[in-house]
Amino acid sequence: MAKVGETTLFLDLAALEHNYHYLRSKIEPETKFMAVVKAFAYGSDMVAISKKLEKLGVDYFAVAYVGEGVLLRDAGIKTPILVLHPLASNFDDLIDRCLEPNLYSRNLLTQFLEVATANKQQDYPVHIKFNTGLNRLGFGENDTSWIAQQVTNNETIKVKSLFSHLAASEDPNERAFSLGQIESFKKASDALIEQLGYTPMRHMLNTSGIINYPEAQFEMVRSGIGLYGYGNEAAVDAELKPVATLKTIISQIHEIGPNESVGYNRAFKSGSRKRTATLPIGHADGINRQYGKGRAAVQIHGKMAPLIGNVCMDMIMVDVTEIDCAEGDEVTVFGPQNSAESFALGAGTISYEILTAISQRVKRVVLND
């Protein structure tokens, strides 16, 4: 890995390839694979990640919003793209870039039919989501007749897939709930398929679902966090490789006397002599205030240096009293040896949040392309 001169997020595409093949090994050869690359590919680089995955042979991409899909199409991505949360105001752009909408409500399906008809579309691929207990987006089981009527009464749209989302696939204590969701999805999808007269693909499993409920892989699975190296449980994490490594440097070192304070609001007060290092990264870069006051630590020369005081907009301060280090030395915020999950844990949050929070002003460097 190159020497760091500024705060940099390194993205290891060899790790991405490893994770993809690991997850593929958990499903049947004929099962299709949808790669979730929303939120800048979980805070990394959506275009670089998607291009690599397209070369590896993923069957579908999933993004959250139309703008993300437009970015991929404009970068040359040809693989089908499901937009998980399309907004009616973006339907013209969606159709223009051949993106495929999740139509999750009567209102949205009706609106899309109007726009697609006006654009003279025929058999435009759409996806139908059922709410089976997550209670965010989705039709209910009692909507199947209405959906079938709208779809079969015109030639404008055709259902490409039916899907749902497990609420707690990583939690063994919620296994009964997850199994109930799977049964609910089977019931709703079977009913709609019978009324449509043809069989769309079905998908329900996320990363933890792939590991814990392989019997419910249907025709396709979806993976997001697993592709980036995190599996929501220690045994799976050990098999995966973090794609992103966030590094920075020491800008300045201070000798702090007893009863001195560090940072805004004097949030850290020293009870003895301390040595602190100031790093050029802060909440404007995605290291939010919740990580301050000792709730997270960075790695310097293989040793952990806890954050002290409040996180500033562009800087954090860490305790290096017991670490032999100098200004300009490299610092790892998270990576293979100090995972994003570990960094997040002390602040009571999860890897998803710290990964997706990394600001776009942080330099990205792609490795092993």
Rank of each mutant, 00 (worst) to 15 (best):
G140K: 14
K363N: 14
K293Q: 15
E68P: 01
I354D: 02
Y65R: 14
R175Y: 04
K78S: 14
L71H: 09
T7M: 02
T321D: 02
S272M: 03
A267Y: 05
T199E: 12
N102E: 09
P80M: 01
H283N: 05
L345Y: 14
H301A: 15
C312M: 09
G286E: 08
E239G: 03
K26E: 09
L240F: 14
A168K: 12
V47E: 05
I49P: 00
V36G: 02
S351A: 15
N206K: 06
N119R: 15
A15P: 13
P306T: 07
R364E: 09
S89K: 15
G286T: 13
D96C: 10
N338Y: 07
G263R: 10
G263S: 13
F185C: 03
G328K: 01
L179H: 08
M220I: 06
V236I: 15
K293R: 14
Y264N: 08
N119A: 15
N338F: 05
Y42P: 05
A191Y: 06
H18D: 03
L23H: 11
G348M: 12
N259C: 00
N131M: 11
V70P: 10
R97I: 11
N173Y: 11
V362G: 03
G138F: 12
K51N: 07
M34T: 08
N153Y: 02
E219C: 04
E17K: 15
T156I: 15
A244F: 08
V236Y: 00
A41G: 08
R202V: 05
R289Y: 07
E30K: 12
I77M: 05
A188R: 07
E141Q: 12
